[in-house]
């Protein structure tokens, strides 16, 4: 895979500019943590990336998760694989899933500890469970790059670590917006700090300590 690039992109909201102009290049195998205080433009940047890279099989975990509440966990996860199957297959799956697909998806759910909720409707589940459904969907999609906005914010310590491990094992190229700086440093090899819509920091994570990042969160 060639590198993914953004060149002098901007985002406006109404009259005001909320992001950019900024440029960045993401090399294959690079996992980037986006850090910065809320409102700095992390989500906007992620959506910009998604709109630029969607057709290169990017997977997205948006902050609102993008789940269909009226469908089951299984179906929400299966959605990550819609393009891999024929339309009939997708249609029949809606009424009655195939064994083969269940066998493929069930281990993912087990790994994220929500296998028992496989046939519950997503709308009935808690915030943490829903977040893991969205993660499982990204895992099942197995795209070329993961763009995730606070993918583990509602999970407790060990669960968050497990989910991050699973995601980073599947995606060696990823951009993750994180507010948990320690987790970000642990799972990413590059940190980009956003402040007031521009890149304020761009360093390999091994050179950074938590304290180097904290100023970005100061008001």
């Amino acid at each position: 895979m060639t590198s993914l690039t953004l060149h002098e992109v901007v985002a406006d909201y109404g009259e005001g500019r909320v992001l950019g102009p900024l440029s960045l290049t993401l090399s294959p195998g690079e996992r980037v943590a986006l850090v910065g205080k809320s409102g700095a433009g992390k989500s906007t940047l992620l959506h910009l990336m998604y709109s630029h890279w969607r057709h290169r099989n990017a997977a997205l975990i948006p902050q609102q998760l993008g789940l269909v509440d009226t469908l089951s966990t299984f179906h929400n996860v299966y959605m990550g694989g819609l393009p891999r199957h024929s339309i009939h297959h997708n249609l029949i799956t809606l009424a009655r899933p195939f064994r083969r697909d269940i066998d493929a998806i069930f281990p993912l759910l087990e790994r994220l500890e929500i296998a028992d909720k496989c046939w519950n409707r997503a709308g009935e589940l808690s915030g943490g469970q829903r977040q893991r459904i969205a993660a499982a969907r990204a895992l099942y999609q197995a795209g070329s790059v993961l763009l995730a906005d606070e993918p583990v914010s509602s999970l407790d310590g060990p669960q968050a670590a497990a989910a991050m491990t699973a995601l980073t094992e599947t995606y060696d190229t990823a951009v993750l917006a994180m507010h948990d700086v320690e987790l970000a440093l642990r799972f990413c090899d590059r940190v980009i700090g956003i402040d007031q819509g521009t890149i304020a920091l761009d360093q390999p994570s091994r050179r950074l300590a938590t304290s180097d990042v904290l100023p970005l969160y100061a008001s």
Binding site: N57, L65, M79, L82, P83, N90, L91, R137
Partner: peptide
């Protein structure tokens, strides 16, 4: 948002059947 989060090239019909339709069903 759910339709937006689907992988690219999911197909119009599949996208409809898996996202907008179940959301609007009731």
């Amino acid at each position: 948002e759910p339709a937006h989060a689907l992988p690219a090239s999911s197909g119009r019909l599949s996208t409809l059947l898996y996202t907008r339709l179940p959301l609007a069903w009731s």
